[in-house]
Design a binder for these strands. Sequence first.
DNA 1: GTCTATACCGTGATAGAC
DNA 2: GTCTATCACGGTATAGAC
Lengths: 194, 194
Amino acid sequence: MTTPRRDTYTPDSLLQVAVQVFNERGYDGTSMEHLAKAAGISKSSIYHHVSGKEELLRRAVSRALEGLFGILDEPPAREGRAADRLEYVVRRMVEVLIAELPYVTLLLRVRGNTGTERWALERRREFDHRVAELLKNAAAEGDVRGDVEVRLATRLVFGMINSIVEWYRPDGRTGARREVADAVVQLVLTGLRG
Amino acid sequence: MTTPRRDTYTPDSLLQVAVQVFNERGYDGTSMEHLAKAAGISKSSIYHHVSGKEELLRRAVSRALEGLFGILDEPPAREGRAADRLEYVVRRMVEVLIAELPYVTLLLRVRGNTGTERWALERRREFDHRVAELLKNAAAEGDVRGDVEVRLATRLVFGMINSIVEWYRPDGRTGARREVADAVVQLVLTGLRG
DNA sequence: GTCTATACCGTGATAGAC
DNA sequence: GTCTATCACGGTATAGAC
């Protein structure tokens, strides 16, 4: 019952190609011609599968957002001390970011020129706020330092996590993801001095 | 002897406008028409001041790179224990990033589609390596934890610092920059737990 | 499902008047 | 120093054959 490898495109298999090109050249820097070359079909054939460039973007960022918001529904993100939930969410963010690397990468680079992009930015802000709440509660419970403003700390932690898309490239090593997640959790919680 | 406010453009005053638009719309998402509208002059008038869009990009990223590399020439970045030099450089990076915010923002978003962009990326990597050396030495001197790989830690710290351009906006408060620099130094060195 | 051909528009850049 | 007019090109998207 496994679908055998087809030599024709589905919206999803086309998306896989498109997202890669978007991430290499930037969304605005990518033309339908670039996509056609990368997919090995003509420009017009792309329109048979998707309505246009923006649909590809929408599908991609949707997938990334689903992955991220999914974290907040997982039991360890909802139960227990805020500091523990926060640690769990930070670790899972790294894991999801790596598992869905090209899609999250694209999401994080969206600027807001089109309706789709503005929608993506809004959902990102929503996610950020949810995590900021967690950090706020952890501070209220005394598990997080009080001398750095919660909003500021949240932004910096997100900055560290999100920056992974700028350099992480999958390699053969099993456990590479785990190593990155561990490093982020360690640095976020106890810093360089350890 | 102060140059009075002129109502005509210089390459630099035009750059100021252009960089702002580049950062709002993305470099590739910005047309000469967009720049003309923002500057309040016609497209062709822009070509009187600069050779084209790419020259504006080159001027902008050059300015950002000068600011960053300048840090490494400052005495506190060259003398003393590696850990102290590292702390100094981290603080100064935040300060320069904020002082030259729009220019550094543009630099950090460059993707590599043109020659200018690839040159900028190369110089960035060079700067990264210089700071990684500092971290490596601090680890060798025992002032930094050994359970997180130096290369990985450098990337994550850079990620945190560079992410400031995504949200920092100047306000009236004096000391806001200092507050951000303090927070970054605190989080980088001792983490959320403090 | 993919192609070639093409419509139509916005792009970066230039010419030349004022 | 700025303008209007214009160019050649490449952009997204569509038509219609196979």
